[in-house]
Design a protein around this nucleic acid. Structure first.
Ligand SMILES: [Mn+2]
Ligand SMILES: [Mn+2]
Ligand SMILES: [Mn+2]
Ligand SMILES: [Mn+2]
Lengths: 218, 218
DNA sequence: ATTTATTTTTAGACAAACCTAAAAAATAAA
DNA sequence: TTTATTTTTTAGGTTTGTCTAAAAATAAAT
């Protein structure tokens, strides 16, 4: 139905729209690593296909159809990521690139059977929600750990980066998706935090780390 | 490394070379559903990349590198087919198209991990051998059932068609990959055969069916 | 309110992979 | 051995998705 290039643009618009309603040409250019002129060309094409609404100089946003397409791609991306980690023993940080290719395999039957085979997972390895076959997903009410008040017990639900470096650090600190913890102290000087994890050890993490960890109250 | 189009050409040359050493432009044109002129264009490109040896009007054949690439693609194709049938409960006849897309996912790590996850299968759902990570595979000595002498016990190892119609017929007759049987009678009039399967029932099959069933002696 | 800087769009080009129509080469038939 | 047929290649074009360079629109600064 849509080409790989079109799908990548649609997904990029969707993601950038989470930040702000109207997406700029330059934002897309940065996200997709293409020149602004190429973005303009593609936006005209997507407009003519009624995937986005776009007026010159006004930025772009997805149409209803566009959102449906975006969610279908994201669904595939995250299901494949789950498959790679859960079944093929990939590391967390190795799956994104491969999923970037797998998300463009078109067969709906394949996606739905994969979903069933995986047991209809609700979240991908990075804690991001997996849309169901109708595009619905459960948006977890999550907040940055760096914004949580002390002494509340929370659980890690997602991470804001998928880098090998972050994964390495988390492994070393004994943190992973689902780990329970509470903030014991926040140091004004450098924003570092002391956490009690699994109701046992106390560890220290930096402000930078706390800002890429998303948690939910338990 | 190679584009999807290039990979499809490489694979097509490989398959056509099983029939005859030198592959013609028209044969490729038919196999790939493109016009001869387009094939000529691509052959020039593949030659310049040293994937094939090609001289105008002389036909084409794969170089050493070309064979390696072809086997890597075929390996992926067949492993994915195995995955779809074995893990995702696809029918036999539904996997080819999807595998035609999946075979172009580039990650070597993915293929090797998939291979391990599936238990290093040696044959795909159609009985075709799956090359290992070095491109080696075990070529089964197989012959058409229609050429086997009566009263020899044989086992179905492969099929010469992947159509839904064939699968339906095989299911109905109680035949599948690995089924043991012996030929009890061959009728001169229409070439139909009487088979004793699993040392139990006797069934009748047509000459057409017998010619697309490949078997090995047991 | 101008001038300056940034963002975005246009204009023109290019590579990949396909096409049609016509020419040329190779094969087969007379 | 000509002539006819088939196969293959060339020539010229199209679409998709990218690019650079330059122009135009918008936003920011003086
Ligand atoms: Mn992608
Ligand atoms: Mn993810
Ligand atoms: Mn293919
Ligand atoms: Mn197969």
């Amino acid at each position: 139905m849509y080409t790989v290039a079109e799908e990548n643009y649609i997904k990029a618009v969707y993601h950038l729209q989470q930040q702000q309603e109207m997406v700029s040409t330059n934002a897309l250019s940065a996200e997709l690593q293409t020149r602004p002129a190429s973005v303009t060309d593609m936006l005209k094409k997507l407009k003519s296909k009624r995937i986005v609404s776009y007026e010159p100089y006004q930025g772009v946003k997805l149409s209803g159809e566009g959102k449906k397409v975006a969610l279908a791609i994201i669904r595939k991306h995250r299901l494949w990521e789950y498959f790679l980690v859960d079944k093929l023993q990939f590391g967390w940080d190795e799956v994104h690139e491969v999923a970037e290719e797998l998300e463009h395999i078109s067969s709906t039957k394949l996606v739905d059977k994969l979903d069933a085979y995986l047991g209809f997972p609700k979240f991908d390895p990075h804690g991001d929600p997996i849309p169901d076959s109708k595009g619905r997903f459960t948006a977890q009410t999550q907040e940055q750990l760096s914004c949580v008040a002390p002494d509340k017990t929370v659980e890690i639900t997602a991470v804001g980066s998928q880098s090998t470096e972050l994964l390495e650090l988390l492994k070393h600190k004994g943190l992973q998706m689902g780990t329970r913890l509470e903030i014991k102290k926040i140091f004004e000087f450098d924003g570092s935090l002391e956490l009690k994890i699994r109701n046992q050890q106390v560890i220290t993490i930096s402000r930078d780390l706390a800002s890429v960890l998303f948690v939910k109250q338990v």
